[in-house]
Design a protein around this nucleic acid. Structure first.
Lengths: 222, 222, 222, 222
DNA sequence: AATGAATGAGCGTTCATTCAT
DNA sequence: GATGAATGAACGCTCATTCAT
């Protein structure tokens, strides 16, 4: 069963479309998608051309339009595809955590792991999710929300477990977590990338949980 | 006295240039810059055209090339100008803080304040600083670094003052802070913007300092 | 079989290219080339626009860039194509001459014939080969040289045969011949063109060989 | 008395014009003309800009339009100015020759001398007089004619003197002479220019008069 | 007279998209 | 389905010319 299949549901209505979910044809759809992300990562969306993508994918320019409505649609399909794929993995990782803190650690670790593994995806994600203008693109916006929902659940669980403070503005907590992970990835992407991104997970979780501040002994005496 | 004046020092050498720092002429440089940022914020850099910018600025297309080498140069000049301007204000705000925690609070508050005040700038900053591909652009990269340097100083001071833990990976701390502030701004930019961004400063600082976790009583017995 | 075919060998490496040597597609390359030369002849290179050429060739503007790297390349390809074509004919004509004088006559006659037949080419040649500034363009420079080489050979043969004086500065002889033929063509191009250019060949050869001067009887007594 | 004065008669009717024949103002007219020719020689007419000329002349762009109707007019004025100047010298040189052959020699020598002395002029002349398209420009066409008239006179005189054959097609003779001199200059312009152009005069005259052919001894016996 | 900032028409070139094969 | 030649709208940029100062 091909992971890309679900995408067809999006566009089927709008266009002639090569259905044949399990055939070889489908490889082409995949290949174009991966090629596009590679090119986007290298040059940025607007500086990438259909020709470059076609070349990278080893197909003719026109072939791309059999699978994608237009250039934008390539990005959209990429996001909806990767989002589903990656989030399934995120959820899986979270479920394996015995408690909230471990769930958070697993989430962040998986997040870093996936982005380290697929650098092209990482670049496109970082770039496009900060493209305020294009953010109107429904898929992208939805993705952010999904991530934050996962975080919400974890935090709430932690509060019930007593490991996370109750007096927290949840919206802010989510931004702190997503923001810092994003920035860790961003820094890595801009660096020479000769360090292991995943190793940042534990210290980062520690920092998020414990904060920068010293534990005040005075707390106790009060 | 016009805040844009200093930019002239950048290009004076390269091009015939309408200097006359305090005259009316100079307004045009300013006007184009503001117009450009407005258009960039609305459409994104690549989807903005010189014609749109010229129209927004109320000048002819060709006039833009009297002040800017090319389209890219508009963005570059904007960054070098705003960076200097904003960072001066950041530093000023930081200096007014009596201790590290207050300095951090002042920095974040000022950061949110400046970005709330000038939404166009905020959008362009958020977008362009995450543009991995174009990041090669020197000015932009430098800006991030400057911010992180300020944060470093504050954290180190806090460590000496005893308000911030010593056992911290400084690089990570910086990313936590910049990342969470960025994400707070980003969320605001994507929202309806009917809440006050600055009011997020105090809770955010609290969160950064205290962390998510409950103070562990067990700490004491150790 | 199409005479333009060989040009493909020049650019094949540099660009995606519609090969299919004997197909209909190829006509387009030819058509653009002829259209361009016509427009260049009418307006001059710099005052010709891609749009005019495209219109003359009956193709879209963009189509031109499928066959030519840029505007300059049209001229370059034209020269390398015509040079080869015309010089083959020159050499052929020269070879048919039984002796040096006849070879020279054949060369000049063929030269005038070819230029009379294709007036657009003649105009572009006359114009561009005298464009000192642009002459750096390799192809054009080389062409002049080739012509002079042919002349050299003829003159040397004539010297061996005894029909041409030995005490001649060869470089100057070449310039005399090329210059006078050029000027004959030039004059024709500027005239109403209602006379036959080829008919100038015999008198011109006579003039070149015999010179303006009267045979001096005193020669004999010396 | 300034050599440029006569030009004013051409444009006086068409435009506001800085008359003041003997004043300093006139220097500016001269300076612009010389600057323009220098720039034209370096880059070619169409690739030269008014700004470059202005800069070279040390005046403002706008100033040029006080003296010249438009860019074309600069070239036109240059030609009418130089033509007069140079032809006066040609005629003078010709007059000094005691007989036709010497007159021709003087003409060619002076021709080479003038063009060697003012290389910029030489380049512009060679380029523009072969610009078939632009040749419509009245001044340029007239110039060629004047040259040929001088040659005609000389040749006719030579025929009367008995030094030049009578059975000559005069039109062709003129082209032979002008063409070969042109080509000698052209070659020099394209070369490294480290040889003396004037030294070509005598051998060239010899060649033109005597021709390439051996004096046939048989002539005599017939 | 002289300036040079401002103009905007015009051009070369690119590239997403189409469609005949 | 697959191709890739062809299209032409659109854009960045240049530069001759004008005109307020």
């Amino acid at each position: 069963m091909n992971e890309y299949s679900f995408i067809f549901q999006i566009n089927r209505a709008t266009r002639r479309f090569p259905i044949r979910i399990k055939g070889k044809t489908n490889d082409k759809h995949h290949r174009i998608l991966e090629a596009a992300v590679k090119v986007f990562a290298e040059k940025g969306f607007f500086q990438s051309t259909i020709s470059q993508i076609a070349k990278e994918a080893g197909v003719a320019d026109g072939t791309i339009y059999l699978y994608f409505k237009n250039k934008d649609d390539i990005l959209t399909q990429f996001f909806s595809y990767k989002t589903k794929l990656v989030f399934d993995r995120f959820k899986e990782a979270v479920e394996e955590g015995p408690n909230a803190i471990e769930k958070l650690r697993n989430l962040i670790r998986k997040h870093l792991e996936e982005f380290q593994r697929d650098r092209n995806m990482a670049v496109v994600y970082q770039t496009e999710t900060h493209q305020i203008t294009r953010m109107a693109e429904y898929q992208i916006k939805k993705m952010s929300k999904k991530y934050l929902d996962i975080v919400s659940e974890i935090v709430e669980q932690g509060q019930q477990e007593g490991s996370i403070r109750r007096s927290l503005y949840l919206g802010l907590v989510k931004r702190l977590i997503l923001g810092s992970v994003d920035e860790v990835i961003n820094t890595w992407l801009h660096s020479k990338k000769n360090y292991d991104l995943i190793s940042m997970a534990d210290p980062l979780v520690e920092l998020i949980i414990e904060g920068l501040g010293k534990k005040r002994e005075t707390d106790h005496s009060s």
